[in-house]
Write a protein that binds this DNA or RNA. Structure first.
Lengths: 263, 263
DNA sequence: CAGTGGTCTAGACCACTGC
DNA sequence: CAGTGGTCTAGACCACTGT
């Protein structure tokens, strides 16, 4: 390996020298993006040995600990795994290849070659009932946004989602376009809210009359029931959603790590 | 805060001074355990501000970066969250309070005040078929362990699990007691295999004749179908399991983080 | 302003893998 | 043996929060 820093020649996010200028992005973060790109582009393939921490540090003109931080975060995201004394390797999981970013209903459906769509059935402000208030950790009666959506693939209904959201300014969502935009992106871009974690419960059941109509199914068809609470990076529960997925048409995918393993 | 090191007086895992003796456990790891204990014991409650990184370092006679590593790992596990300029806080999630360690079928059921049990229906070595070989990343026809288990709560059948395992020495599992021992613990303790990640698919469906009999349900009852591949810390798929959970009796719980969010 | 987490450095020794 | 990741240090400057 040549000891030159290969960085800054024509790339948009550039490593800054020391702390001279205002840093645009942290160095470890830039390296993360570079390594992600290596995988997406196929330069690094599943099972490949990546350069050592010391090598990467030298190559990009950063310290070993900074390079290590970039690698560590990607290990935590399941992209890489390490072997003591041998090196760091690219994982062979689905999660590595496919998405990395955010997989959503929309992308799931697109990936299967179908056309995803969302129809807003209902969006209003209502006072929080006891159940919703408990999940959102607010007082009963506070105004929350209620959003009911129908999810479709190739014009065929797949799921009904009933969400309740609460945050300062949530009432503005009533006027937003929620049919052609991801709620996630909207929250992040317009409201500056980052969603980081979610707790979700799933169980199997049968459709009731209302949902059967919406999903174009016979009453009592098999369905996946989910209840999800989504949290911001500040540990604030921001959304509580209950969904019904048409059993025969939707597969729910999970990636579990470390302490979440259920055996 | 007094600048004394509060460590080493009567505790089992003790911080070592510098690198003089052979370290028993990494310092950041010991601090992790201490902080976990603070939460389990209730000394630190959900929402509490924990001591700063600098304080913890001073208190336990370690550098700030080492204390920070301990905190960072617990943040990644969902125990803490950080706020720039304010401090680090204890999360309010279920995951924080309940388990931390490993939640399993056994503990789930116990937590509900029921008596969990496992009945081994079948355990043999068979050649891997195409589907199993693909999921375990081995050649078709290699001998794998097939394990069929019935899971019960208060003597009532809850789920049927059909697993295939492959690793060097897996044939010894035939002689192990799989009814009164967690498979996870057995793999770790006896075979030195650490399970770190899993991919799982879930969908809703209806029970067939065989499963209905095993689960004491009418044919065509709602059920949760899962397919799981479990990976070791070396990125080796070691188990491929298909399960059927009785829909009315079992709720599947997931905690999703960062890049796994589906919205 | 002092205190917090966020980033970063330039070293160091260790345990482990491979040759 | 040289190379890898695993751990650790004692500093440093930054951006951000509170008062």
């Amino acid at each position: 390996m040549a000891p030159e820093a290969l960085i800054g020649k024509g790339m948009e996010p550039t490593f800054m020298h020391h702390h001279s200028h205002k840093s645009p992005l942290p160095r470890y973060y830039q390296l993360k993006e570079i390594m992600r790109e290596k995988i997406i582009s196929g330069a690094w393939k599943p099972g490949d040995l990546i350069p050592s921490e010391r090598e990467l540090g030298e190559q990009y003109g950063i310290s070993r600990m900074t390079a290590r931080q970039a690698i560590t975060e990607l290990v935590n995201e399941g992209m890489f795994y390490r072997e003591q004394g041998k090196g760091t390797f690219v994982s062979r999981h689905k999660i590595t290849q496919q998405l990395i970013r955010l997989t959503g209903f929309t992308e799931d459906i697109s990936a299967r070659g179908q056309a995803p769509a969302t129809r807003v059935l209902n969006v209003t402000m209502i006072p929080a009932d006891e159940n919703v208030a408990e999940h959102l950790r607010i007082r009963v009666g506070l105004p929350v946004l209620r959003l009911q959506r129908l999810r479709l693939a190739d014009d065929e209904p797949l799921a009904v989602e009933r969400s309740h959201l609460y945050f300062i300014g949530c009432e503005q969502l009533v006027d937003d376009d929620l049919e052609h935009q991801s709620l996630y992106r909207l929250l992040e871009a317009k409201y500056g809210i980052q969603l980081i974690q979610a707790e979700q419960e799933l169980e199997a059941g049968l459709t009731n009359e209302e949902d059967s109509k919406l999903l174009h199914l016979p009453i009592g068809s098999p369905a996946l029931y989910t209840r999800r609470t989504t949290y911001t990076n500040r540990d604030q529960p921001i959304e509580y959603a209950r969904s019904i997925y048409s059993g025969s048409k939707y597969t729910f995918y999970t990636h579990m790590m470390r302490n979440q393993l259920v055996l």
